[in-house]
């Protein structure tokens, strides 16, 4: 298994895709931090510069950038194998396709951790700078540590979830577009309009884990962090099992 994971990491490293996605994630982090830290007395986003948990909130929101990008990387790591026909060679090396699925998931977890290291570092440094510049309070709290830990966990989980989606939906445009529209648009509405349902959805559970809710319009609508984490883990497990049961039995013609 170690050698298969190593091989998957070589595949990720040997094309430009991961690099471009990392740059995209970093750019999105910059954007999200700039938008999320309130300017002056504006509290329209539910945040104010005097909040003691402002830093933790901003870090939580900016994690969204990384999670979406890592999800896309996970999806593409599998769909590209079908798109370019490298799946044949991959399955010839490892005829038990479940091992390929697991190896890719582990490789993407590693990639997710590396992405989280880069995005969270930028996120923290930039947030502190901007909050200070706008005259807010930078508070290093236990809550910040909890959000950081949650952010790392989310980044490590979204890649493997993407891998399973990619195995199930082999068409890469459909898979990436579908996942992003669901996560960013559909779930956004659900959490706001039907929180009773939305909080149990993958994106809602993620928001719960990161505790984005307390600050946003969805105040009080989300699951507590531990429950959000468990629900998200549940989704990852279910989709992983689905992928190994359904998708990988198909004939490769």
């Amino acid at each position: 298994m170690t050698s298969l994971v190593h091989a998957e990491l070589i595949k990720l490293r040997s094309t430009r895709l991961a690099l471009w996605l990392l740059l995209t994630a970093l750019a999105l982090v910059v954007l999200l931090v700039l938008v999320t830290v309130p300017a002056g007395q504006d509290t329209s986003g539910g945040l104010s510069l005097r909040d003691t948990d402002l830093l933790a909130r901003v870090v939580g929101v900016a994690t969204t950038a990384g999670e979406v990008v890592v999800l896309a990387l996970g999806i593409l790591s599998f769909t590209q194998e079908f798109r370019f026909g490298t799946a044949t060679a991959t399955f010839l090396v490892a005829p038990d396709r479940r091992r390929v699925l697991i190896a890719k998931a582990l490789a993407l977890a590693v990639a997710g951790l590396l992405f989280s290291a880069a995005t969270i570092t930028l996120d923290l440094v930039l947030s502190v700078l901007i909050i200070n510049a706008r005259g807010g309070a930078v508070v290093w709290s236990g809550e910040l540590v909890a959000v950081l830990a949650a952010a790392v966990a989310v980044m490590a989980l979204y890649g493997p979830i993407g891998v399973a989606i990619g195995a199930l939906v082999r068409n890469q445009i459909a898979a990436v577009a579908g996942a992003l529209v669901w996560l960013l648009a559909v779930e956004g509405f659900l959490v706001t309009l039907l929180p009773a349902i939305g909080r149990w959805m993958p994106g809602g559970a993620t928001a719960g884990l990161l505790q984005e809710g307390r600050a946003a319009t969805t105040h009080g609508a989300l699951l507590p962090a531990w429950a959000g984490g468990l629900v998200l883990l549940g989704y990852a497990t279910v989709i992983g099992l689905l992928a190994s049961a359904l998708a990988l039995r198909k004939d490769l013609t």
Binding site: I10, K11, S14, F84, G85, T90, L92
Partner: peptide, 30 residues
């Protein structure tokens, strides 16, 4: 399997953005 059977198939492809050596390296490591 790779030490016992070598295969070249019509549909087997390559990622255009990968070098030849990296393509083979991924397989050799696996």
């Amino acid at each position: 399997p790779l030490r016992e059977v070598g295969a070249l198939l019509e549909a087997s492809g390559f990622h255009p953005g990968r070098t030849a050596i990296d393509h083979l390296l991924g397989l050799a490591v696996a």
